[in-house]
Structures are given as structure tokens and as C-alpha cells.
């Protein structure tokens, strides 16, 4: 069965366009949904998860209507982009509650939650309150909540945003494991290199429309021609900047008060160098993100500058 089938799917927020006339199928496997911020990724994912109702057209997920049919949502695991959770609860309590609300019988929900948390590497922290968690721990907890009810389709909206490099690698490996076990996994990102580490199959979305789908390498070649920006937020940004300043792939460094933005023509090497610099110097990393302006420029380039509608976050 096709996991997702969209037929002339559109979604407006008032006059703002979220998704425009999308006809697309997701047969299965691991697929990356790539596009800059505001491209319509989150809207498309919310439509899949049953949070939104199409303004026009139709979307069918696992053979049913995700907005109208709770039984379809029972088979979907959706992880939203934002970090908000029920911070008063421990990770175990949160995942248990959400597993039960997703249809896991009450008696089985605690065990399902523990297994999902363990699967996401949260064994040690599962009895701590979510309020004190780092971004990476929150993402892992959210992913555990997404998995605990054993869904067939995982819809993960920017699951690697703000996660430190070590956790990022770990989470990617865990997601690969799920895919290898037969789950259909759709992961969105505005960072090509995150998606590349996960899958070769991508869907490119821009201004609410699916521009292309297929192999990642063609897109990557285009993107690599443009400088890629990496923003490192840490306690000693100048040390990190100094460590990578001499590298031939670094085009420019921009210092901020508690961060450094590295502009590079070889993101893979740059990420490696930054990770090494951070670990060697014992720098306290707060966040490593990739501003998407360059990706936006690439999409403009890919579309030949043709405009679509408005975007959404």
C-alpha cells in the first residue's frame, strides 16, 4: 500500500499559501523532505498527520483520511518541529501518556514508553522532568513519543534541529534502524547534509510546491556551488573560529556575541572540523544550526527565480 498519496493538494492560511496543488505519492522507505524555511514542509507534514484539513484536493495516508479518521492516525507517528512538550512531566510519564492516547492499552503503555525511550538512548534520563532537558534530549523524547505506539509511518518534522553533532549521528543511526525494520520514514530538514546522512531519496519542496524528487546527489552538486553557513552557538566562539579559520574550505567567519557563523564550500569537512575543534577544546556547545539563506538561494536558482505563493513556517 502507498503510504501517502496527495492529489492536487492545497492548503491556505487565509491568504497565505502553505501547500499549492501538490500531486505526489510516498511509496515507502526513508524519504527526506527538503526545502528552506517557509517552503511548506511543515504544512505538508501536518496534513499527513491529520492536524490540518486540505483547503483543496485530497490526501490519503495509509489508505484513509488522516484528519477525519482516528484509526489512520493510530498508524502515524508525528513529531512536530517545535520543542514544546509537557515540561512538568518526566520523560517516562510524557511518553507513557502519549502512547496511551495513541491507542496503546493503558496497562501496556508504561512498558511501551520505556522501550521507546531506551531505543532513543534515554534510559538514564527517563525519570527526569522534561523541563531540564537539552534540545537533543527533547528531540529524543519527542521521537520516543512518536515511536511508542509502533506506527507504520513516521512523519518527523526537523528532528535534528538544534541537536549537537554527536546526538545527531546517534539519532540518524536510530532512524536508519527503524527504516531497516520496514517503517516508512519521512524526515524534513532545510539542511541537505542532515538528509544526506539518512537517505538518498529526497523530495524537494519550495514555495508550497514539490519541485523535484529522486536522488540526492544531483541536488547536492548544485548546492555545493553555493557557500553553506553553519552557526555555532557556544561559550567560546572565538576559539572555535580560530580553530577553523585556516581551513581552505572556510570562506568567511562572522562573529556574534555568543556564536560564530562559518561560511564554507565543503560542509562535510567543515562539520568534521568544527566537531573536532569543539571536542578537543572542551567547548560547551549550545546549538549548531544551519541558517537556510543559502539553501533558499539555491532553490531560487533551481526554480529559475519563478515565484510561487507565500510561505509558512
Amino acid at each position: 500500500m502507498t503510504a501517502v498519496r496527495a492529489e492536487r493538494l492545497s492548503k491556505w492560511y487565509g491568504h497565505v499559501l502553505g501547500v499549492s496543488d501538490v500531486t505526489w505519492t510516498l511509496p515507502g522507505g526513508v524519504v527526506g523532505l527538503l526545502g528552506p524555511n517557509g517552503a511548506g514542509k511543515s504544512t505538508l507534514m501536518k496534513l499527513m498527520a491529520g492536524l490540518l484539513r486540505p483547503s483543496r484536493g485530497a490526501i490519503e495516508v495509509l489508505g484513509g483520511d488522516p484528519f477525519a479518521d482516528p484509526w489512520v492516525r493510530r498508524r502515524i507517528g508525528y513529531s512536530p518541529e517545535h520543542e514544546s512538550t509537557y515540561d512538568e512531566l518526566t520523560a517516562r510519564e510524557l511518553v507513557t501518556a502519549l502512547a496511551h492516547l495513541a491507542g496503546v492499552p493503558r496497562a501496556q503503555a508504561p512498558a511501551a514508553a520505556v522501550r521507546a525511550l531506551e531505543a532513543m538512548g534515554m534510559s538514564e534520563a527517563m525519570d527526569r522532568k522534561v523541563r531540564g532537558f537539552s534540545k537533543g534530549m527533547r528531540q529524543r523524547t519527542k521521537l520516543a513519543a512518536t515511536l511508542a505506539h509502533d506506527p507504520d509511518l513516521l512523519v518527523l518534522d526537523e528532528p535534528l534541529t538544534g541537536v549537537d553533532p554527536v546526538a545527531r549521528i546517534d539519532i540518524i543511526e536510530r532512524l536508519k534502524g527503524l527504516a531497516a525494520a520496514g517503517k516508512t520514514v519521512l524526515v524534513s530538514s532545510h539542511v541537505l547534509y542532515e538528509i544526506e546522512a539518512l537517505t538518498e531519496d529526497i523530495v524537494v519542496i519550495y514555495r508550497g510546491q514539490v519541485l523535484a524528487e529522486g536522488n540526492i546527489y544531483e541536488i547536492r552538486r548544485l548546492i555545493d556551488r553555493h557557500p553553506h553557513r553553519i552557526r555555532v552557538e557556544c561559550d567560546r566562539p572565538r576559539e572555535v573560529a580560530a580553530a577553523v579559520a585556516g581551513a581552505d574550505h572556510v570562506a568567511r567567519l562572522v562573529m556574534e556575541r555568543r556564536a560564530v557563523i562559518v561560511e564554507t564550500r565543503d560542509p562535510d569537512r567543515c562539520y568534521d572540523d568544527l566537531a573536532a575543534a569543539i571536542v578537543e577544546r572542551g567547548v560547551e556547545l549550545r546549538a549548531m544550526t544551519s541558517p537556510d539563506n543559502n539553501l533558499g538561494a539555491v532553490f531560487e536558482y533551481l526554480t529559475g527565480g519563478r515565484g510561487g505563493g507565500g510561505g509558512e513556517a
Binding site: 496503546v104 501496556q108 521507546a116 515511536l147 511508542a148 509502533d150 534502524g177 527503524l178 531497516a180 525494520a181
Partner: peptide
């Protein structure tokens, strides 16, 4: 059945 780390038979 759901993959590494997934609960066995957790689905209601």
C-alpha cells in the same frame, strides 16, 4: 516487529 528498539506488541 517494528524495528530495533520498538516495543514488541505495544500497538493496541
Amino acid at each position: 516487529p517494528g524495528g530495533p528498539g520498538l516495543p514488541v506488541g505495544a500497538r493496541g
